[in-house]
């Protein structure tokens, strides 16, 4: 019976953060969401994160969106093709995949360091894939 209990517990954890509607001021833009998912899927780590959080993430867009996660909603800047937004989304999906509902904000904590390093890797690869990389891509040294 132990494996059955484990499966039950794990599935319960996996649904602990059901996707929520976008808060006021944010849009659930289907086109932007598809663009962002495609960009994440093009990256090996991004694709794994999408798979791990399937059905649990809602992408919400607004100009200057802060790049935070709240109850399964990723509040992002409305520039889904921007390598920084792609990398930021991966950072937040990393927290979501680990079931982290509220993070410490401490850049030295293990979870935050891992998420930030992942973000830097995603960013560098998104810049490399871009047909016309933005100027700031050249200003950030590869990780």
């Amino acid at each position: 019976m132990r494996p059955a209990w484990s499966v039950l517990l794990l599935s319960g954890c996996a649904h602990a953060q059901a996707p929520r509607e976008c808060p006021a001021g944010y849009m659930t833009d289907a086109r932007a969401s598809t663009e962002l998912r495609d960009a994440l899927r093009a990256d090996p780590e991004g694709a794994r994160l999408l798979e791990a959080t399937a059905g649990r993430a809602t992408f919400c867009f607004a100009r200057g969106g802060p790049g935070v996660l709240t109850e399964g909603a990723l509040l992002l800047d409305d520039a889904p093709a921007d390598p920084r937004v792609v990398a930021r989304a991966a950072h937040l999906l990393h927290h979501l995949a680990r079931g982290e509902r509220v993070t410490s904000g401490d850049p030295h904590s293990a979870d935050e360091r891992a998420a930030s390093e992942l973000e830097a890797r995603l960013f560098a690869r998104a810049c490399q894939r871009s047909a016309s990389p933005p100027a700031y891509c050249n200003q950030v040294p590869p990780p």
């Binding site: 929520r20 808060p23 006021a24 001021g25 802060p66 790049g67 935070v68 996660l69 709240t70 109850e71 909603a73 509040l75 950072h91 937040l92 927290h95 979501l96 982290e100 509902r101 509220v102 993070t103 410490s104 904000g105 850049p107 935050e112 998420a115």
Partner: peptide, 22 residues
């Protein structure tokens, strides 16, 4: 300066809007 944060408030006084960020 957290990345995963609680949701915005459900209600705000007139003239204000609910927000959540870092």
């Amino acid at each position: 300066w957290a990345d995963a944060v609680p949701p915005p408030p459900d209600n705000c006084p007139p003239g204000k809007v609910p927000v959540t960020d870092h």
